[in-house]
Simulated scan of single mutants.
Amino acid sequence: MHTAPSGHVDTYVIGDIQGCCEQLQQLLTKIEQQSPQARLLFAGDLVNRGPQSLATLRLVKQLHEQGRADSVLGNHDLHLLAVANGIRPAHRSDTLDDILQAPDRDDLLDWLRHRPLAICLDDHLLIHAGVFPQWSVQQTLSLAQEVTTQLQSENWISLLRQMYGNTPNQWNDHLQGADRYRCIINALTRMRFCSSDGIMDFASKDGVGTAPAGYAPWFDLPRASADHTLVFGHWSTMGLVLRPNLISLDTGCVWGGKLTGVSLRNRDVVQIDCPQQQEPG
């Protein structure tokens, strides 16, 4: 179960970078000016679609090895692992070649697959995308650890082969094997809209006002995790959202929006304007 150390050091959570390393460096400079010893937690999607995926991965790995940072896995990070192992073809919009051709490729990919899917820090839970309404924080951490254990085992390639697909789209404690892992991964790295009885919708990727009939943004449903502040990225069309028990961090850096960091101590927001690297859609 992955729990980050707390202490008195300020922690900044940072949204989806997606290979925009120049903007990440600018953001880190701003954060260090305000809190020189700040710990950094990244909401996943470190790579892909931006121009500097290799530099981004190297930088975050270096920060982690210095004891300053960690990251949860996002869907683009898992996609990189799948492409690198011949499980999925590259997408037309992918910008992963610099990593795949790098001399330190194996070290970077090994480090990436050892990242968690959920991190708990005091009363904050960091995931990339979402959690089912019925999942408590402890259950979320436990289920995330099940996948992490597989991803760090000798069976990790098999897990990557089995993780694609939209079914089952509803959690059941009795799910087993590939179905169980796939459902956990889809919730933690892909979820946006969900029904009150815990059925995920994967078709709609637009803003919160575009929920299909019978669905709502997962965080607007009554949820067993409401005793913690949920921190996540993934949903760039929603942008920055700060509520008493919610921090949404993906502000569309790769789409020409901003790269955002938020202090967990005082909700201080630090942002960098980003040039557009990809056309939406």
Rank of each mutant, 00 (worst) to 15 (best):
108 L>S: 06
30 K>H: 06
167 T>S: 15
154 E>R: 12
77 D>N: 04
47 V>W: 09
160 L>G: 07
3 T>P: 01
273 D>A: 13
153 S>A: 08
69 A>D: 13
195 S>G: 12
157 I>P: 06
16 D>G: 06
178 A>D: 15
23 Q>H: 09
119 I>G: 00
215 Y>I: 12
188 L>R: 03
95 T>W: 02
174 H>F: 11
260 T>F: 04
178 A>N: 12
123 D>Q: 14
197 D>N: 13
140 T>K: 05
217 P>W: 07
97 D>G: 09
212 P>V: 10
9 V>H: 14
275 P>N: 06
111 W>I: 00
30 K>R: 13
111 W>S: 00
178 A>L: 08
269 V>T: 14
195 S>R: 10
142 S>R: 10
247 I>D: 05
132 F>K: 08
200 M>L: 15
75 N>F: 05
5 P>I: 03
52 Q>E: 15
87 I>S: 09
140 T>N: 03
263 S>W: 01
97 D>W: 09
207 G>K: 11
189 T>P: 03
104 D>A: 09
204 S>F: 03
80 L>W: 09
61 K>L: 07
121 L>V: 09
196 S>P: 05
59 L>F: 03
92 R>G: 03
20 C>A: 01
89 P>R: 13
89 P>F: 04
186 N>E: 07
198 G>K: 09
71 S>M: 07
183 C>D: 05
81 L>G: 11
190 R>A: 06
2 H>C: 08
68 R>A: 15
214 G>W: 06
100 L>H: 06
93 S>R: 12
162 Q>E: 15
266 N>L: 01
130 G>Y: 11
150 Q>M: 13
87 I>R: 05
111 W>E: 00
110 D>C: 04
119 I>T: 03
13 V>L: 05
264 L>D: 04
160 L>E: 09
162 Q>V: 04
20 C>E: 00
173 D>E: 14
28 L>A: 05
179 D>R: 05
183 C>Q: 06
229 T>C: 15
144 A>F: 00
15 G>V: 08
17 I>G: 00
158 S>T: 15
225 S>W: 14
99 I>L: 01
60 V>L: 10
8 H>L: 13
